[in-house]
């Protein structure tokens, strides 16, 4: 079974994304912030982490290194945020983020992307 982690300070957004992935045969966990994310990612290796918002990346923490054990390309990191500016998107990609989606997000598209990525990992 795949493991997915959703990191969001807004419980509502976390629930929306979690429920849109509900029938995917995956263990979906939620973290409300950086500390919870760090704790969960230390306990188990996730296949995919979906971070809602960009503030974690811009504050100076190396989020991707925190999530990925040395030498591994897992977990994949997706970011869903409101930002449209090209510079912000490029910054995130430079940080090691694999996919960037903007709000308002198409839940079908998000689901399809996640399903494709996870099936490729099998």
């Amino acid at each position: 079974m795949h493991r997915i982690l959703i990191v969001s300070e807004e419980e509502f957004l976390c629930d929306v994304i979690r429920l849109s992935l509900a029938d995917m045969r995956a263990d979906v966990r939620c973290a409300s912030g950086l500390a919870a994310m760090e704790r969960l990612s230390r306990r188990m290796l996730f296949d995919l982490v979906i971070v809602v918002g960009t503030s974690l990346f811009f504050s100076g923490r190396d989020v991707v290194r925190m999530l990925r054990p040395p030498g591994l390309r897992r977990p994949l990191v997706y970011v869903v945020a409101w930002q449209q500016a090209e510079q912000s998107v490029l910054s995130l990609l430079e940080c090691g983020v694999d996919q960037y989606l903007t709000f308002p997000v198409s839940l079908q598209r998000l689901r399809a992307k996640v399903a494709n990525e996870l099936s490729r990992q099998l």
Binding site: A81, Q83, A85
Partner: peptide, 15 residues
């Protein structure tokens, strides 16, 4: 303080 700078930098606003 690193914590204060993190707080100041964490705004999501683009400009």
């Amino acid at each position: 303080s690193p914590a204060q700078l993190e707080n100041l930098l964490s705004s999501e606003y683009s400009r």
